[in-house]
Design a protein around this nucleic acid. Structure first.
Lengths: 345, 345
DNA sequence: AACCAAAATGAGCACGTGAACATTTGACAA
DNA sequence: TTGTCAAATGTTCACGTGCTCATTTTGGTT
């Protein structure tokens, strides 16, 4: 019977008015019961709850939101969920959302088409969200001229600052600054850098961090090696580095900074395959701390981003009252394991 | 000025009525412009668009939904986003959602507390969703007696069938059935099974698939080895297996079926470290095909689940018209690489 | 100019709710 | 009993939209 009722009503749940009629009370009393207000007799409450049960009552989100104004949800627009970092960031956002009793409304932007912030923003704003976070992996073609939708706080996950939106990202630049200094401090003034693909923004910032830091230390940078984030590309570069090391000479590299952990893994495999030892012959560091549990005996010295922190900050900026616009770079932490040797003195 | 207006209105956007007043038309005409109806003069449309622009008009989702009834969004409740499989499933859901112009409203269920379907369902139903997908990694304590919220189609991602909800999952059982048969067909009647943790449902089904298949082939199953999904636990089990192989005897294992790829990777590392060759001395297969790009020279024969397919089916079941209740097991595909040797004859 | 069909536009209603305010009920003291 | 006060309950309103139906305007034909 109840099932019938629900179906006949065009897929909609019963309204509070119908519940009220069945329970023999006013609609407002039903509302009070639903929202757990104190001033309702226990007897009345029970009668209302029974009626709700019988009709399969589901309070209308639309009605409530129309009255109240807030949706208790933020929008999240992602370009590519698979990317390693995005997942942890998503977790940080979800966790912060849970703490505020918010939901996260996600939209994915399509694979092949160019990803314009305006498109994402327009699609998102017609959803019930109180704010939005736009994840920008590749450079959006309209980044500079982008104007956020009025009335919805918009946060962009990006290393670049924006004139109208708060931007947040892990400090990609600082990560390689930190690691380069770390290697320099351990006596490795002759290092190789294995970069990520050219079209990746983080890749560009990581490379710049490395290059600038060497420059500030007045150390010449050897030509960069270009990978594509994959372990196999790291392996290929590792073979080249092994050849250099085996050839010897004054410019022999003593360390490798790989722009992510997978490539570092490939580099190590290639070096060891060439009969070299890590870290006795060559030190290697990666970035991301992404190998935990994935490979046996993980010993890679690497760097961990606070991606959950990024997500949390992004969420809070998106629901925040403050209308100030900031460019936040979240610092990272060194994870020392055993692929770097100190060769000073 | 416009910014001011928006803020003074208690954070709300201007309404269609205000736009109408500014443009000197009726509210209904504004509605027509917003929804792209054909019967509006170009001149009027322009005037309305200008007014919208000036006031920063954002159509009220609540108002529209209240009138229309559909939210064009489905709810997704996850227990643990990090889990490898969940990510790809999420992608499948997102992709299907995009094709239907749906958004996905996500809620994460908290880490420590026991995860009851009723809790998830109750929290989700108060959101603007037209259906919901509940991802059940661990066994929910209330699985059997769970009654979905009335009026919202509810799909559970689970290997177990449910009397009131459609359930969908990759065929965990069938995966190990397939791999065990594959090893048997290649002459490996003496294999070891490295299982996942006991509290994992997929782990249990994978183990059952292995054990039952051996039973049907009238082959005795050697005692199972228990891992925890991590590469290190695989390595530990690999050491035991290596010792067995080196000890020799009629029960010497010739193959290992690891319940996931990371453990398989650990097993291989341990075997090779003990001086054994894969696959010349021992064949190894994994499950998940999770190493792509992560390790150099990935050569692991494994099995790929159609997780995106699971997500797609789940989405379609959640928005589907049909009220039939099914238990869907999505089959997996063998990925042959080079860690299995044929030792027949 | 007069007329008519078609197109454009306007008016009013209903959707389901929460808040503010008004009314009724009930308990208790005088 | 009566009066008083607080608690419980009811009434009314506004939120912003899409749809139906009525009205006005437009453009073309006689």
């Amino acid at each position: 019977m109840e099932g019938m009722d629900q179906q006949t009503r065009n897929g909609r749940s019963a309204s509070a008015a119908e519940v009220a009629a069945l329970a023999g009370v006013s609609r407002q009393t039903v509302s009070r019961v639903v929202n757990g207000m104190p001033n309702v007799t226990e007897k009345t409450r029970k009668r209302v709850l029974a009626a709700m049960e019988e009709l399969g009552f589901r309070p209308s989100f639309a009605g409530a939101a129309l009255r109240g104004g807030s949706y208790r949800s933020i929008g999240l627009c992602m370009y590519n969920i698979t990317r390693v970092g995005n997942l942890a960031t998503l977790e940080g956002i979800m966790q912060a959302a849970r703490e505020h009793d918010f939901a996260v409304t996600m939209i994915e932007m399509g694979g092949d088409k160019p990803y314009a912030l305006a498109d994402a923003s327009r699609r998102m704003v017609e959803r019930p969200v109180d704010g939005m976070i736009l994840n920008m992996n590749r450079m959006a073609p309209d980044f500079e001229e982008f104007v956020p939708q009025p009335g919805v706080r918009t946060v962009i996950l990006s290393m670049y600052a924006h004139p109208r939106c708060t931007t947040i990202d892990s400090d990609q630049y600082g990560s390689c600054e930190l690691l380069t200094n770390y290697l320099l401090e351990h006596g490795h003034s002759n290092m190789r850098f294995v970069a990520g693909p050219e079209n990746s923004i983080s890749s560009r910032f990581r490379e710049a961090g490395w290059r600038d830091t060497l420059g500030r230390a007045h150390v010449d940078a050897a030509p960069m090696l270009r990978g594509d984030w994959s372990a196999d590309s790291g392996y290929a570069m590792g073979e080249r580095i092994a050849a250099e090391v085996l050839a010897g000479g004054s410019q022999t590299p003593t360390a490798v900074l790989a722009a992510n952990d997978q490539m570092a893994l490939g580099v190590i495999a290639a070096l060891e395959n060439a009969g070299l030892s890590v870290p006795d012959d060559v030190s290697v560091v990666g970035i991301d701390d992404a190998l935990e549990g994935l490979v046996p005996h993980n010993r890679l010295t690497t760097l961990r981003f606070d991606l959950r922190g990024v997500g949390k900050l992004a969420f809070e900026a998106a629901i925040g009252e403050s209308s100030s616009i900031e460019a936040i770079h979240v610092p990272s932490t060194l994870v020392e394991r055993s692929t770097v040797r100190d060769i000073r003195g």
